[in-house]
Design a binder for these strands. Sequence first.
DNA 1: CGGCATTTAGTTGTGCACAATTGAATTGTG
DNA 2: CACAATTCAATTGTGCACAACTAAATGCCG
Lengths: 175, 175
Amino acid sequence: MTTSRATAASRAPGAPGAPGAPEEGDLLRLEKQICFSLSAASRAFNGVYRVLLKDLGLTYPQYLVMLVLWEHGELPVKKVGERLRLDSGTLSPLLKRLEAAGLVRRERSARDERSVNVRPTEEGVALRERALQVPRHIVAATGFDLDELLDLRTRLDRLTTTLDAAALEQTPDCL
Amino acid sequence: MTTSRATAASRAPGAPGAPGAPEEGDLLRLEKQICFSLSAASRAFNGVYRVLLKDLGLTYPQYLVMLVLWEHGELPVKKVGERLRLDSGTLSPLLKRLEAAGLVRRERSARDERSVNVRPTEEGVALRERALQVPRHIVAATGFDLDELLDLRTRLDRLTTTLDAAALEQTPDCL
DNA sequence: CGGCATTTAGTTGTGCACAATTGAATTGTG
DNA sequence: CACAATTCAATTGTGCACAACTAAATGCCG
Protein backbone atom coordinates (compact mmCIF):
# COMPACT_ATOMS: atom_id res chain seq x y z
CA MET A 1 0.00 0.00 0.00
CA THR A 2 2.95 2.23 0.20
CA THR A 3 2.77 2.25 -3.54
CA SER A 4 1.55 5.78 -3.60
CA ARG A 5 4.74 6.68 -5.35
CA ALA A 6 5.06 9.88 -7.11
CA THR A 7 6.35 8.42 -10.28
CA ALA A 8 7.23 11.77 -11.68
CA ALA A 9 7.49 15.00 -9.87
CA SER A 10 5.98 17.16 -12.55
CA ARG A 11 5.36 19.92 -10.13
CA ALA A 12 4.40 23.27 -11.47
CA PRO A 13 2.23 24.49 -8.69
CA GLY A 14 2.26 28.19 -9.24
CA ALA A 15 2.85 28.25 -12.93
CA PRO A 16 -0.21 29.68 -14.59
CA GLY A 17 -0.12 27.82 -17.81
CA ALA A 18 0.91 24.52 -16.32
CA PRO A 19 -1.33 21.91 -17.87
CA GLY A 20 0.11 19.04 -15.90
CA ALA A 21 -1.93 18.30 -12.82
CA PRO A 22 0.18 18.23 -9.69
CA GLU A 23 1.23 14.82 -8.58
CA GLU A 24 -0.58 13.36 -5.62
CA GLY A 25 2.14 13.74 -3.05
CA ASP A 26 2.53 17.36 -4.00
CA LEU A 27 -1.17 17.85 -3.65
CA LEU A 28 -1.10 16.78 -0.05
CA ARG A 29 1.78 19.12 0.61
CA LEU A 30 0.35 22.03 -1.30
CA GLU A 31 -3.00 21.69 0.22
CA LYS A 32 -1.55 21.56 3.66
CA GLN A 33 0.00 24.91 3.01
CA ILE A 34 -3.28 26.47 1.97
CA CYS A 35 -5.51 25.23 4.71
CA PHE A 36 -2.84 25.61 7.32
CA SER A 37 -2.11 29.18 6.27
CA LEU A 38 -5.69 30.08 6.87
CA SER A 39 -5.98 28.57 10.32
CA ALA A 40 -2.58 29.98 11.24
CA ALA A 41 -3.68 33.44 10.17
CA SER A 42 -6.88 33.03 12.10
CA ARG A 43 -4.99 32.06 15.24
CA ALA A 44 -2.48 34.85 14.77
CA PHE A 45 -5.33 37.33 14.55
CA ASN A 46 -6.79 35.81 17.65
CA GLY A 47 -3.50 36.30 19.45
CA VAL A 48 -3.41 40.01 18.65
CA TYR A 49 -7.01 40.43 19.71
CA ARG A 50 -6.30 38.55 22.90
CA VAL A 51 -3.65 41.06 23.85
CA LEU A 52 -5.71 44.09 22.83
CA LEU A 53 -8.92 42.92 24.45
CA LYS A 54 -7.43 41.78 27.72
CA ASP A 55 -7.75 45.26 29.16
CA LEU A 56 -11.39 45.36 28.16
CA GLY A 57 -12.02 42.03 29.84
CA LEU A 58 -13.29 40.55 26.58
CA THR A 59 -12.36 37.55 24.52
CA TYR A 60 -12.50 37.85 20.79
CA PRO A 61 -15.87 36.11 20.36
CA GLN A 62 -17.26 38.21 23.18
CA TYR A 63 -15.98 41.27 21.37
CA LEU A 64 -17.82 40.20 18.23
CA VAL A 65 -21.03 39.87 20.23
CA MET A 66 -20.53 43.30 21.73
CA LEU A 67 -19.96 44.76 18.26
CA VAL A 68 -23.32 43.42 17.20
CA LEU A 69 -25.02 44.76 20.31
CA TRP A 70 -23.38 48.17 20.04
CA GLU A 71 -24.69 48.37 16.54
CA HIS A 72 -28.21 47.14 17.19
CA GLY A 73 -28.88 47.90 20.82
CA GLU A 74 -31.13 44.96 21.59
CA LEU A 75 -31.56 41.68 19.80
CA PRO A 76 -32.89 38.20 20.44
CA VAL A 77 -30.20 35.57 20.87
CA LYS A 78 -31.30 34.05 17.61
CA LYS A 79 -30.48 37.20 15.66
CA VAL A 80 -27.06 37.53 17.28
CA GLY A 81 -26.34 33.97 16.29
CA GLU A 82 -27.39 34.60 12.72
CA ARG A 83 -25.10 37.58 12.40
CA LEU A 84 -22.10 35.76 13.79
CA ARG A 85 -22.93 32.27 12.55
CA LEU A 86 -22.91 30.95 16.08
CA ASP A 87 -25.46 28.63 17.59
CA SER A 88 -26.99 28.58 21.03
CA GLY A 89 -24.49 26.03 22.24
CA THR A 90 -21.81 28.67 21.84
CA LEU A 91 -23.85 31.76 22.63
CA SER A 92 -25.68 30.66 25.75
CA PRO A 93 -22.62 30.26 27.96
CA LEU A 94 -20.86 33.19 26.30
CA LEU A 95 -23.80 35.50 27.01
CA LYS A 96 -23.98 34.26 30.57
CA ARG A 97 -20.37 35.26 31.05
CA LEU A 98 -21.04 38.67 29.55
CA GLU A 99 -24.00 39.04 31.88
CA ALA A 100 -21.91 37.97 34.86
CA ALA A 101 -19.41 40.65 33.85
CA GLY A 102 -22.21 43.19 33.92
CA LEU A 103 -21.93 44.05 30.23
CA VAL A 104 -25.25 42.71 28.96
CA ARG A 105 -28.69 41.84 30.25
CA ARG A 106 -30.78 38.92 29.11
CA GLU A 107 -34.52 38.85 29.52
CA ARG A 108 -37.25 36.74 28.08
CA SER A 109 -39.30 38.46 25.48
CA ALA A 110 -42.73 39.39 26.73
CA ARG A 111 -44.46 38.62 23.49
CA ASP A 112 -42.66 35.36 22.81
CA GLU A 113 -41.54 33.53 25.89
CA ARG A 114 -39.30 31.26 23.88
CA SER A 115 -37.11 34.16 22.84
CA VAL A 116 -34.46 35.86 24.97
CA ASN A 117 -33.51 39.43 24.25
CA VAL A 118 -29.98 40.62 24.89
CA ARG A 119 -28.99 44.25 25.27
CA PRO A 120 -25.90 46.00 26.56
CA THR A 121 -26.03 47.52 30.02
CA GLU A 122 -24.85 51.07 30.61
CA GLU A 123 -21.51 49.60 31.47
CA GLY A 124 -21.56 47.64 28.25
CA VAL A 125 -22.36 50.73 26.24
CA ALA A 126 -19.61 52.63 28.01
CA LEU A 127 -17.12 49.95 27.06
CA ARG A 128 -17.62 50.89 23.45
CA GLU A 129 -15.61 54.04 24.00
CA ARG A 130 -12.57 52.04 24.90
CA ALA A 131 -13.19 49.50 22.17
CA LEU A 132 -12.93 52.27 19.62
CA GLN A 133 -9.18 52.12 20.07
CA VAL A 134 -9.00 48.49 19.02
CA PRO A 135 -9.47 48.69 15.24
CA ARG A 136 -6.62 51.11 14.81
CA HIS A 137 -4.23 48.77 16.58
CA ILE A 138 -5.47 45.79 14.65
CA VAL A 139 -5.07 47.44 11.29
CA ALA A 140 -1.62 48.60 12.29
CA ALA A 141 -0.68 45.11 13.45
CA THR A 142 -1.55 43.60 10.08
CA GLY A 143 0.99 45.73 8.27
CA PHE A 144 -1.50 45.93 5.41
CA ASP A 145 -2.92 49.13 4.08
CA LEU A 146 -6.66 49.58 3.92
CA ASP A 147 -7.01 48.66 0.28
CA GLU A 148 -5.19 45.40 0.79
CA LEU A 149 -7.33 44.58 3.81
CA LEU A 150 -10.53 45.33 1.94
CA ASP A 151 -9.40 43.21 -0.97
CA LEU A 152 -8.54 40.39 1.39
CA ARG A 153 -11.92 40.72 3.06
CA THR A 154 -13.66 40.49 -0.29
CA ARG A 155 -11.78 37.33 -1.20
CA LEU A 156 -12.42 35.74 2.15
CA ASP A 157 -16.11 36.49 1.99
CA ARG A 158 -16.32 34.95 -1.44
CA LEU A 159 -14.41 31.95 -0.16
CA THR A 160 -16.75 31.56 2.80
CA THR A 161 -19.85 31.72 0.65
CA THR A 162 -18.53 29.10 -1.73
CA LEU A 163 -17.30 26.84 1.04
CA ASP A 164 -20.59 27.00 2.91
CA ALA A 165 -22.45 26.06 -0.23
CA ALA A 166 -20.05 23.17 -0.82
CA ALA A 167 -20.40 21.90 2.73
CA LEU A 168 -24.13 21.59 2.24
CA GLU A 169 -24.04 19.53 -0.93
CA GLN A 170 -21.12 17.49 0.21
CA THR A 171 -22.75 14.46 1.58
CA PRO A 172 -20.84 11.28 2.30
CA ASP A 173 -20.26 9.65 -1.04
CA CYS A 174 -17.72 12.19 -2.20
CA LEU A 175 -14.92 10.16 -0.73
CA MET B 1 -23.98 58.45 27.00
CA THR B 2 -25.28 57.07 23.87
CA THR B 3 -24.07 60.34 22.50
CA SER B 4 -20.62 58.95 22.40
CA ARG B 5 -19.59 61.24 19.65
CA ALA B 6 -16.02 60.98 18.65
CA THR B 7 -14.82 63.94 20.58
CA ALA B 8 -11.64 63.78 18.62
CA ALA B 9 -10.08 63.42 22.00
CA SER B 10 -8.60 60.14 20.97
CA ARG B 11 -7.46 61.30 17.62
CA ALA B 12 -5.00 58.77 16.46
CA PRO B 13 -1.41 59.58 16.96
CA GLY B 14 -0.40 56.70 14.80
CA ALA B 15 -2.97 57.15 12.11
CA PRO B 16 -2.29 59.55 9.32
CA GLY B 17 -4.49 62.52 9.82
CA ALA B 18 -6.15 61.77 6.56
CA PRO B 19 -8.75 64.34 5.66
CA GLY B 20 -11.26 61.68 4.76
CA ALA B 21 -10.38 59.53 7.73
CA PRO B 22 -13.22 57.17 8.57
CA GLU B 23 -15.40 58.30 11.41
CA GLU B 24 -15.00 56.23 14.53
CA GLY B 25 -18.29 54.45 14.30
CA ASP B 26 -17.40 53.38 10.81
CA LEU B 27 -14.11 52.06 12.04
CA LEU B 28 -15.79 49.67 14.41
CA ARG B 29 -18.08 48.48 11.67
CA LEU B 30 -15.42 48.17 9.03
CA GLU B 31 -13.06 46.40 11.32
CA LYS B 32 -15.73 43.98 12.32
CA GLN B 33 -16.03 43.02 8.70
CA ILE B 34 -12.34 42.33 8.35
CA CYS B 35 -11.74 40.30 11.46
CA PHE B 36 -15.05 38.56 11.17
CA SER B 37 -14.43 37.62 7.56
CA LEU B 38 -11.29 35.82 8.53
CA SER B 39 -12.77 33.80 11.36
CA ALA B 40 -15.82 33.06 9.25
CA ALA B 41 -13.63 31.79 6.44
CA SER B 42 -11.67 29.71 8.88
CA ARG B 43 -14.81 28.15 10.28
CA ALA B 44 -16.23 27.60 6.82
CA PHE B 45 -13.06 25.76 5.85
CA ASN B 46 -13.36 23.74 9.00
CA GLY B 47 -16.87 22.79 8.09
CA VAL B 48 -15.83 21.44 4.70
CA TYR B 49 -12.98 19.51 6.25
CA ARG B 50 -15.30 18.14 8.88
CA VAL B 51 -17.50 16.62 6.20
CA LEU B 52 -14.60 15.31 4.13
CA LEU B 53 -12.66 13.90 7.06
CA LYS B 54 -15.56 12.23 8.79
CA ASP B 55 -15.11 9.12 6.71
CA LEU B 56 -11.45 9.00 7.66
CA GLY B 57 -12.30 9.30 11.32
CA LEU B 58 -10.18 12.42 11.63
CA THR B 59 -10.81 15.94 12.80
CA TYR B 60 -9.11 18.76 11.00
CA PRO B 61 -6.32 19.28 13.56
CA GLN B 62 -5.76 15.53 13.65
CA TYR B 63 -5.51 15.62 9.86
CA LEU B 64 -2.84 18.30 10.10
CA VAL B 65 -0.87 16.13 12.49
CA MET B 66 -1.15 13.15 10.16
CA LEU B 67 0.04 15.29 7.25
CA VAL B 68 3.17 16.10 9.23
CA LEU B 69 3.70 12.47 10.16
CA TRP B 70 3.09 11.21 6.63
CA GLU B 71 5.73 13.62 5.46
CA HIS B 72 8.34 12.95 8.13
CA GLY B 73 7.65 9.47 9.35
CA GLU B 74 8.68 9.90 12.95
CA LEU B 75 9.06 13.03 15.01
CA PRO B 76 9.22 14.10 18.63
CA VAL B 77 6.08 15.81 19.88
CA LYS B 78 8.06 18.99 20.13
CA LYS B 79 8.79 19.05 16.41
CA VAL B 80 5.17 18.38 15.50
CA GLY B 81 4.17 21.29 17.67
CA GLU B 82 6.68 23.58 16.02
CA ARG B 83 5.44 22.72 12.55
CA LEU B 84 1.80 23.30 13.46
CA ARG B 85 2.27 26.02 16.07
CA LEU B 86 0.52 23.91 18.64
CA ASP B 87 1.65 23.39 22.19
CA SER B 88 1.63 20.29 24.34
CA GLY B 89 -1.64 21.26 25.93
CA THR B 90 -3.27 20.77 22.57
CA LEU B 91 -1.10 17.99 21.20
CA SER B 92 -0.97 15.65 24.17
CA PRO B 93 -4.66 14.76 24.26
CA LEU B 94 -4.91 14.92 20.47
CA LEU B 95 -2.09 12.41 20.07
CA LYS B 96 -3.65 10.18 22.69
CA ARG B 97 -6.83 10.08 20.66
CA LEU B 98 -4.88 9.29 17.51
CA GLU B 99 -3.12 6.51 19.39
CA ALA B 100 -6.41 5.19 20.74
CA ALA B 101 -7.65 5.14 17.14
CA GLY B 102 -4.64 3.03 16.21
CA LEU B 103 -3.21 5.59 13.81
CA VAL B 104 -0.02 6.55 15.65
CA ARG B 105 2.30 5.18 18.27
CA ARG B 106 4.00 7.20 20.96
CA GLU B 107 7.13 6.03 22.67
CA ARG B 108 9.70 7.70 24.84
CA SER B 109 12.95 8.38 23.15
CA ALA B 110 15.69 6.07 24.33
CA ARG B 111 18.36 8.70 24.23
CA ASP B 112 16.33 11.45 25.86
CA GLU B 113 13.66 10.24 28.20
CA ARG B 114 12.00 13.63 28.24
CA SER B 115 11.14 13.36 24.59
CA VAL B 116 8.30 11.33 23.10
CA ASN B 117 8.50 10.19 19.50
CA VAL B 118 5.36 9.88 17.44
CA ARG B 119 5.10 7.84 14.29
CA PRO B 120 2.23 6.56 12.19
CA THR B 121 1.28 2.91 12.50
CA GLU B 122 0.76 0.79 9.41
CA GLU B 123 -2.89 1.66 9.66
CA GLY B 124 -1.95 5.31 9.90
CA VAL B 125 0.25 5.06 6.83
CA ALA B 126 -2.51 3.24 4.98
CA LEU B 127 -4.91 6.04 5.75
CA ARG B 128 -2.79 8.34 3.63
CA GLU B 129 -4.11 6.65 0.51
CA ARG B 130 -7.61 7.70 1.30
CA ALA B 131 -6.52 11.15 2.43
CA LEU B 132 -5.09 11.77 -1.02
CA GLN B 133 -8.64 12.36 -2.19
CA VAL B 134 -9.18 15.22 0.23
CA PRO B 135 -7.16 18.04 -1.38
CA ARG B 136 -8.98 17.72 -4.65
CA HIS B 137 -12.31 18.15 -2.97
CA ILE B 138 -11.10 21.04 -0.87
CA VAL B 139 -9.71 22.93 -3.81
CA ALA B 140 -12.90 22.31 -5.70
CA ALA B 141 -14.99 23.49 -2.77
CA THR B 142 -13.21 26.83 -2.64
CA GLY B 143 -14.24 27.72 -6.15
CA PHE B 144 -10.82 29.35 -6.54
CA ASP B 145 -8.31 28.35 -9.14
CA LEU B 146 -4.83 27.37 -8.06
CA ASP B 147 -3.27 30.75 -8.74
CA GLU B 148 -5.81 32.51 -6.62
CA LEU B 149 -5.32 30.04 -3.80
CA LEU B 150 -1.57 30.41 -3.91
CA ASP B 151 -1.87 34.17 -3.93
CA LEU B 152 -4.21 33.99 -0.99
CA ARG B 153 -1.82 31.71 0.83
CA THR B 154 1.03 34.17 0.28
CA ARG B 155 -0.99 37.04 1.67
CA LEU B 156 -2.14 35.05 4.66
CA ASP B 157 1.38 33.94 5.47
CA ARG B 158 2.60 37.50 5.31
CA LEU B 159 -0.30 38.53 7.52
CA THR B 160 0.50 35.82 10.03
CA THR B 161 4.14 36.77 10.23
CA THR B 162 3.33 40.42 10.81
CA LEU B 163 0.60 39.68 13.32
CA ASP B 164 2.80 37.34 15.32
CA ALA B 165 5.49 39.99 15.50
CA ALA B 166 2.93 42.56 16.59
CA ALA B 167 1.52 40.30 19.29
CA LEU B 168 4.95 40.02 20.84
CA GLU B 169 5.65 43.73 21.12
CA GLN B 170 2.13 44.56 22.08
CA THR B 171 2.24 44.67 25.81
CA PRO B 172 -0.62 46.09 27.80
CA ASP B 173 -0.08 49.84 27.68
CA CYS B 174 -1.08 50.13 24.07
CA LEU B 175 -4.67 50.71 25.08
C1' DC C 1 30.16 15.07 42.91
C1' DG C 2 25.99 18.34 44.27
C1' DG C 3 23.08 21.90 42.82
C1' DC C 4 20.45 24.45 39.50
C1' DA C 5 18.63 26.19 35.20
C1' DT C 6 16.75 24.31 30.94
C1' DT C 7 14.13 21.32 28.16
C1' DT C 8 10.17 18.42 27.32
C1' DA C 9 5.50 16.23 28.08
C1' DG C 10 1.84 16.18 30.61
C1' DT C 11 -2.07 18.16 33.49
C1' DT C 12 -5.54 21.52 34.80
C1' DG C 13 -8.69 25.14 33.97
C1' DT C 14 -11.15 28.44 30.94
C1' DG C 15 -13.33 29.47 26.84
C1' DC C 16 -14.99 28.52 22.06
C1' DA C 17 -17.20 25.46 18.07
C1' DC C 18 -20.42 22.30 16.99
C1' DA C 19 -23.57 18.17 17.04
C1' DA C 20 -27.37 16.19 19.32
C1' DT C 21 -30.90 16.36 22.51
C1' DT C 22 -34.34 18.43 25.70
C1' DG C 23 -38.17 21.13 26.96
C1' DA C 24 -41.05 24.93 26.83
C1' DA C 25 -43.69 28.18 24.00
C1' DT C 26 -45.89 29.12 19.78
C1' DT C 27 -48.27 28.25 15.53
C1' DG C 28 -51.05 25.67 12.34
C1' DT C 29 -54.89 22.62 11.49
C1' DG C 30 -58.99 20.42 12.17
C1' DC D 1 -60.56 23.64 22.01
C1' DA D 2 -57.18 19.68 21.10
C1' DC D 3 -53.15 18.03 18.93
C1' DA D 4 -49.17 17.87 15.92
C1' DA D 5 -45.39 20.43 13.99
C1' DT D 6 -42.32 24.11 14.50
C1' DT D 7 -39.34 27.45 16.86
C1' DC D 8 -36.22 28.84 20.29
C1' DA D 9 -32.96 28.67 24.12
C1' DA D 10 -30.60 25.76 27.00
C1' DT D 11 -27.99 21.64 28.06
C1' DT D 12 -24.76 17.84 27.28
C1' DG D 13 -20.75 15.87 25.29
C1' DT D 14 -16.57 15.97 22.35
C1' DG D 15 -12.71 18.22 20.69
C1' DC D 16 -9.50 22.20 20.05
C1' DA D 17 -6.63 26.60 21.69
C1' DC D 18 -4.08 28.49 25.09
C1' DA D 19 -2.26 29.93 29.69
C1' DA D 20 -0.33 28.35 33.84
C1' DC D 21 1.61 24.90 36.31
C1' DT D 22 3.83 20.23 37.41
C1' DA D 23 7.23 16.77 36.99
C1' DA D 24 10.89 14.33 35.14
C1' DA D 25 15.19 14.13 32.59
C1' DT D 26 19.16 16.45 30.92
C1' DG D 27 23.15 19.34 30.92
C1' DC D 28 26.06 22.76 32.82
C1' DC D 29 28.41 24.89 36.54
C1' DG D 30 31.60 25.24 40.15
